[in-house]
Each structure stands twice: as structure tokens, then as C-alpha cells.
Amino acid sequence: MTIRIENLSVTFDGFHALKSVSIAVDKGESFGLVGESGSGKSTLLRAVAGLAPVSAGTIEVNGEALLGNRRSRAFRRAVQMVFQDPYASLHPRQTVDRQLLEPLAIHGIGDGERRILKALDEVGLGSSFRFRYPHQLSGGQRQRVAIARALIVEPEILLLDEPTSALDASVQAEVLNLLEEVRGRHGLTYVMVSHDLGVVTHMCGRLAVMKSGEVVETLAATDLAGGRMVSDYSRRLMVASKGFSREVAPV
């Protein structure tokens, strides 16, 4: 078991963003999180990363229990996150090169030159992108840089917060292929948030459905695709993902 979260609660000034959530993710697994907007999916990932005020419950990663928001150096290297919004997750005043160098500098990893070129190559951006600023990149290219930044320290776990929701369909396909390929090559564990059931069933083996800070159901992707779910909410999600229709549109 790589990640084990038990009865986790997160509270922002009296507002319960997560209410006693439990999930477990195996090593090498790709685990999906879907659910209502504002249900706490991002908060769950941020809690693992030590960016959210945990009020109760335990988080265990690689057998090590995490206390509060303190994280060890080893953890900071083993767990990386890719954020929802590629327009906001890169420093606007730093070149791609600087941003990729930063994690190496923090962790005292040498051989920067070679690693940066390799990371760029791995995400399908040539070295010609190395000295560009974020505003000179498209959304998809930015998200690749964010992925390269996460991969450069050779992590074991990637927390992916809607990595493709800001991208167009053709670029989304490229980024998803890239993520799958990287996972296959390095044996990574993914926890991936998405609101697109198509994407989640494509990428993940198992997934949890969340609503108002709670996990309503955990099931295999094949069960979701086959319509074998127990909760009403999951069923509603399935119906909704068929697209807009004037008849079912709520009045």
C-alpha cells in the first residue's frame, strides 16, 4: 500500500471541506478521483502534499505516517504534484530552464544540464523551449512543463489535479498518452483528479466518487463503464457525461 488515508478531515475556518475520507492506493496503481465541483478533490491532494489544514485522521505514504503539514525531504522528492490550472502553476518571471532547475537545486541534485534536457525531451518539448517564459507557451505546453518539473526529481507518486481540463481535445490526448507512457516507463503511482469520466476510465484502474467532502463510492473503472455502481450520485454523473440535452436539463 503506497498511500493510505484514513478518516481524513480538513476544516477551513469551521467549514468542513473533507469529512472523514478514507482511500487506499496501491503501489504502481493509477487511482482516479471524480465528483462534484467543490467536493474536496483538490483539497484531498493538497492534504497529502501538506498544503491543507488537516483536522483529523491519518495519512500514510510508503508506510510513513505524516504528521500535520510537515514533510520530510525524502517525501518532498518522492511525491510531486501537477496543478489544475497550467496558467497559474508556472512562475511568470522565470524561464522554463529556471523552473526545472529549481527542484534540482532544492534537493541538491547535480548534473542539471543533462537532466533538464532529458526531462524536456521526455515530455515532448525540444530544447528550443528551454529558455522561454510561460507567456510564450500555449496551455498544453505549459502543462507539459509542469509535468516535466514534477518528473525531473524522479518521484514515485504523482498527484495530478485535473491535468488536462484546461487543454483542448487534441492536446489532451497528447498529454494523456504522455502520462501513461511515463507511468509505464518508471512504474509511477498516480492519483488523478478529473471531472471527465471518459478521461478517468481511460487512465485509471479504480476510482472514488466524491460529493460534499465525502467519498460516496469506490469502484473499478470497468464497473463504472459497465454501469455497475451503487450510489445514485455516480449514476447521475454517468447520465450527465452523455452531454447536454434539453429534456433532462433542469428547470
Partner: peptide, 18 residues
């Protein structure tokens, strides 16, 4: 564009790209 979105219940790895 129509072709490269992943759809529920089908398995295409890797996805076709443009």
C-alpha cells in the same frame, strides 16, 4: 478532434493524436 477524446467504455491505448 471528434476522434481523439477518450470515451467511457472503450479502450484505446494510446489515444490517436492529430
Amino acid at each position: 478532434l471528434l476522434d481523439c477524446t477518450p470515451k467511457i467504455g472503450e479502450s484505446r491505448h494510446p489515444l490517436p493524436v492529430l
